[in-house]
């Protein structure tokens, strides 16, 4: 992949939790404004890899990263890089919807407020809610608590909350695992509509979902020592129809995992 097209690139990335190596030698380039899916069996380090992209692993005592994650031409793990700046340019949506116990408005306004962008707040919030396809459902209850929304609405609110900061990349960690099929479909539609403007990286254990929403797919699995490795990475259509690696084929045809 040519330079300048990649939104994020890892080079020989390793992640350690204390003395345990969770990821080994991950090198991959994530293309700009496309959806990249990370798939693989439980415990193979998908979420850990995703959390390397916005330095969320920093918050876990004993976690240590070796290698590079290039974002905007710069290794985000270099000394002097401010993790909070990385996290505001690279948004994240989590497994379980986690709205703050505040109003719908204050949830979306949280990011702009802590990052000192509070002029035109109303407009920013409305735009983010529109983009997350939630505006029509919440426009009359902006001041009501976000915890009153349904699970699917809460997750779209969390996406709106990330979008309010106009991030370049949005990381989604199994965003539909706590949702019913109808709500899942809405989130998937939303992801497709956001691709093109945003780079999206999604971790999913649902292969159909990866096939439906992603342009690129990365298959991770665990080695003997439980470290996650990147087995295969390529365009989703190719990976699912014509996998090069036997292990990928076994996994996507349901022979293990």
């Amino acid at each position: 992949m040519a330079d300048g097209v990649a939104a994020l690139e890892t080079r020989n990335l390793e992640l350690w939790y204390g003395g345990f190596r969770a990821l080994r030698d991950i090198s991959m380039a994530i293309p700009r404004t496309q959806v990249t899916a990370i798939i693989g069996p439980s415990g193979c380090g998908k979420s850990s890899l995703l959390r390397c992209f916005n330095r969320m692993n920093d918050l876990i005592p004993g976690a240590r990263v070796v290698g590079e994650v290039l974002f905007d031409g710069r290794n985000i793990y270099d000394a002097g890089v401010d993790a909070t700046e990385i996290r505001y340019r690279i948004g994240m949506v989590f497994q379980k919807p986690n709205p703050f116990p505040k109003s719908v408005f204050d949830n979306v306004a949280f990011g702009p407020r802590v990052n000192g962008m509070d002029d035109n707040l109303e407009e920013m919030v409305e735009r983010a809610l529109h983009r997350a396809a939630l505006w029509d459902e919440v426009k009359d209850r902006l001041r009501r608590s976000a915890t009153e929304l349904s699970g699917g609405q809460q997750q779209r609110l969390c996406i709106a909350r990330a979008l309010a900061l106009e991030p370049e990349v949005i990381l989604m960690d199994e965003p539909c695992s706590a949702l019913d099929p109808a709500a899942t479909l809405k989130i998937e539609d939303l992801m497709r509509s956001l691709a093109g403007d945003y780079t999206i990286v999604i971790v999913t254990h649902n292969m159909q979902q990866a096939a439906r929403v992603s342009d690129m797919a990365a298959f991770l699995m665990m080695e003997e020592d439980r470290a996650g490795i990147l087995v295969e990475y390529g365009p989703t259509s190719r990976l699912f129809t014509n996998p090069k690696d036997k292990r990928t084929e076994d996994y996507i045809t349901g022979r293990f995992g």
Partner: peptide
Amino acid sequence: RSLRDAAYGLGAT
């Protein structure tokens, strides 16, 4: 923890 993660993920100190 998930609420803290959400806030950190938005660039909060």
